[in-house]
Design a binder for these strands. Sequence first.
DNA 1: TTGAAAGCGATACCAC
DNA 2: GTGGTATCGCTTTCAA
Lengths: 331, 331
Amino acid sequence: MAMKALTKPTIYQVAQLAGVSIATVSRALRDSDLVTQQTRERVLAAAKQLQFTPSRLGRSLAEGRHAANGIVFPELVGPYYAEVVLGYEAAAAGFGSSVLILATNGRPDAEAAVRDMASRVDGLTVMGQSVSDEVVEKLAATGLPIVLLARDPVPGVDTVRAQNKRTAEALVEHLLEHGHRQFVFLGDPAGEPDVGGRYAGAQAGLAKSGVGPARLVPSHGFDLEAGRRAARELIAENDAVICANDELALGVLLERPSQIVTGWDDLMAAQFAGLTTVRQPMRELGATAARWLNRRITERSDKPAAARRRVLPTRLVVRSSCGTHSPEVHR
Amino acid sequence: MAMKALTKPTIYQVAQLAGVSIATVSRALRDSDLVTQQTRERVLAAAKQLQFTPSRLGRSLAEGRHAANGIVFPELVGPYYAEVVLGYEAAAAGFGSSVLILATNGRPDAEAAVRDMASRVDGLTVMGQSVSDEVVEKLAATGLPIVLLARDPVPGVDTVRAQNKRTAEALVEHLLEHGHRQFVFLGDPAGEPDVGGRYAGAQAGLAKSGVGPARLVPSHGFDLEAGRRAARELIAENDAVICANDELALGVLLERPSQIVTGWDDLMAAQFAGLTTVRQPMRELGATAARWLNRRITERSDKPAAARRRVLPTRLVVRSSCGTHSPEVHR
DNA sequence: TTGAAAGCGATACCAC
DNA sequence: GTGGTATCGCTTTCAA
């Protein structure tokens, strides 16, 4: 088989080879029924011979849509965010949309990066505190469909979240039943909105029961190492440590295997560490965001639906790290 | 502040508002030095007032490049693949390239999806057995830069992999030192190339030592559940089970906590399950692929470099699931 | 230094 | 049914 052109074939070459106009090629390829079976075959043959694939750029420019959407993360670290993307990608693929990912990750030019992405997609999912409200509002004002994920609502923009506050209260109640009375909250409530909700819930639960508030210990990060550091330096052995997420809690356990501690996310590791935590529907969070975004993108723009909000349920998963429950020890 | 047009401003509106030509706007915005400071300011002001963001489509079409690249997965499941993307995204961002992700995931139209992605990017990273060699070859013949990741090489295409065979041999040797003599390999060697390498290495190690070959137990999947199923139905208590990945091994442990078993990947969960496994440089795999791809994309296409191959080192991580090592029990 | 105009690669309207 | 052509939004010669 002879090596053909190194330069990608365009619709023009196909038209020429098939002896028809580019309009006809376009029709034949998108199987419009305004072409004879015969000409279609000629075109298809020519296209195949040239290994022709229509340029997405030309197509999108002409159609006025990208057929792609993006999801932006605060930081692409840890299994939690990963799971969310999985759900997102699967759902997006379902309605034929490509997906772009972007981790703002403490990048200095985060806003620029997001704007760039905005110019490549039909809609954007913004997860957590990856960019400021101001940026979200500006983007939304553009008319770009946006869905907020695991983040506090912005007026006029759809929001999908997981239950934080209420379940955090339930978590505290459970710890109180164990008899714990000295609490620490490990994490940075001012950073991610999710964390803020968990913190508020924990304190609310404590206040309700008349026990003094939890001592706040900033973690400066949300990974194993941050948890270890805190355990080594900032936490007493008889503290009941409510962590902002599983990774912190697991870090604490690595350093102090018998510390009373709880996490949040229910990572795979949690089940092996015997960590009491809260299960979030991560795949479902991603999938819901993708679906909502698609709705926005395809809805008639002259009469947009009102902003939607949804809080997906989370549930307490009790294991052994909150204290022993029965004669059988899990850890 | 008055609500401006709902329709996105183009370079023409900016030009009109600033009282210059679109050529000048283009120059001013990409800070070419062929514009007076004065006109530049006028243009910038107009652009800001209109909230103008250049269309990526127009830009890319004119420039002849996407400034984006893609990574395609066999299945976007589990923490392992996730970690690889993290490294990939971070590296790609480093040289200003957007990232598209695609999970072929047993999708029936996998090839079409990959081709679609191919038309949206300047280059593609193909991970594992997400598409057939034939498709890779066709894509490569197009002139599209491609990097293979965790996959057997295809002639003329760059490949980045992690060490499988040699480390699998070391793993087997370690198990032999423990005195184990009855082996099972859990996984599907014919599926992912990585798994094939591990299987081959394990059998080679066994053969070398004169012990009979491992019994192959197909797992039909690589997740916790597949591991549990196998443990319940296909594995004897005195088998030493070499698993294709950590998730399988963890599944086995869930079902049979004292089974002799090893994994592969060193997921976070492995360290809490006391799982003996092999550590892969996942971030580094992703980052290397992204860097290599970028090189290919930016190299002079008239004299491309020869296909590169790299095997990143992996290392055995001994914990307790391969048998007790000393008086102190880890599990 | 600036502007006019020619692409880039498709889609789709309007004639024929 | 098909073909001609305007159009999408930008970059980049080529002139002025």
